[in-house]
Amino acid sequence: MTTVSRAHSFNAAAAQYAANRPSYPPALIDAVEALAGRPLAGACVADVGAGTGIATALLHARGAHVVAVEPGEGMAVAFRQTLPAVPIVRADGNALPFTDASLDLLTYAQSWHWTTPERSAPEAMRVLRPGGTLALWWNISALDVPWISAQQERIARHVGENGPTQRPDEARAIELSGLADLPGRGDVTLRHIRWSRRVPLETHLANIGSHSAFLVLDQADAEAFLAEERARLSELFPDGTVEETYLVELLTTTRT
């Protein structure tokens, strides 16, 4: 299954994504402000790969003048229903619809890996003002929690991917991001922010099912896996509430 097919798979499941995917902790937005060296209030911001608006809503709530960028029609429809007052444009990170040096902050929440860094990284430097900040982040399952690590192993086996690994160190994370040799950038900073949420078991399972690796599976195959997970987790969490634990991996750099 191609990366493009997996990326497009979100459009048919936008409502499921919006209802069940985790958001991000306030500490993440605090860290973005601190690393940017300015408050979000009044800042000109673009949130790229905005999806249904999970991260955009947090930026907007801090007072940013934010524009969402989203290539998928299904996700854009869900975004407009959730955040009707926030502008959204149909584009992607490889060709941003903004003039040179027009943004204070450019964010990619769970979306940088869907771009081509050879194109998206120079685009980021183009649209940022001098001193402006590029912030990339992802929610990553906390593998030091035994039941989470075991579940991630089962998921990887089922969808035919490599099993979970420890997160790379700062140098390797920067290299993997495609920012290592980017002209016009300042230092790249890596931060990890741990947080958790307590959700009903069905929300947890729907969250798993909203990931692209499951969306492209045969429906019966995906449902069979989730039924097995329901049985396992019902024993672990007999009250029907699951505590999901995450590390937000945050990479930031500035335009010099």
Rank of each mutant, 00 (worst) to 15 (best):
A76Q: 13
R21M: 11
T99G: 14
T52Y: 10
L134K: 07
I54R: 07
G74D: 04
T99W: 01
G49F: 11
L35P: 03
N20R: 04
G74Q: 04
A34W: 05
T99C: 06
G63E: 10
P130K: 12
R38P: 05
I29N: 01
D104N: 12
Y17M: 07
A78M: 05
N94Y: 00
A55P: 05
A41E: 14
G131A: 13
R62C: 11
P26I: 11
W114F: 03
D100N: 11
A78I: 02
L58Y: 04
L83C: 05
A19T: 04
A31E: 15
A121H: 03
D100W: 00
A101P: 00
A91T: 03
T133F: 08
E33G: 12
P71K: 10
S102I: 09
H60D: 14
A34C: 05
A18C: 03
A135E: 13
C44W: 12
V127S: 14
H113D: 02
Q16D: 12
P130A: 11
T52R: 03
P25A: 13
Y17K: 07
L136Y: 06
A109M: 01
V69K: 11
G42Y: 06
A101V: 01
L35C: 08
V127H: 13
N94W: 01
A101W: 00
F79S: 05
A101D: 07
H60L: 08
G63T: 04
T115E: 01
A64E: 08
V127W: 05
P97M: 05
C44R: 15
G37V: 09
P84Q: 02
G42F: 07
G74W: 08
G74A: 08
R129N: 09
A36L: 07
P22M: 06
E118C: 02
A85C: 00
A41M: 05
R119C: 07
V66K: 11
G93Y: 02
A34K: 14
W114I: 02
G37K: 09
L105N: 01
T116E: 15
T56D: 08
A12R: 15
G53C: 14
D47L: 15
A109N: 02
I88G: 00
L105W: 01
A12E: 15
P84N: 04
L83G: 02
R21S: 05
R21V: 09
L103V: 10
P26H: 09
A14G: 10
S23H: 08
F98V: 06
N20E: 06
L59C: 04
T82V: 06
G74H: 04
V66W: 13
D30S: 15
D104H: 13
A124D: 09
F79T: 07
L134F: 10
F79N: 08
L35V: 08
A12C: 04
A121I: 05
M75N: 03
T99N: 01
P26A: 11
H113E: 02
Y108Q: 00
T99I: 00
V86A: 03
V48K: 12
G93C: 09
F98L: 06
Y24K: 12
T115Q: 03
V127P: 12
P87S: 02
R119Y: 07
P71N: 07
G72S: 09
T116W: 01
D92H: 03
A27G: 12
A135P: 08
G74N: 04
V32P: 06
P87L: 01
L103T: 06
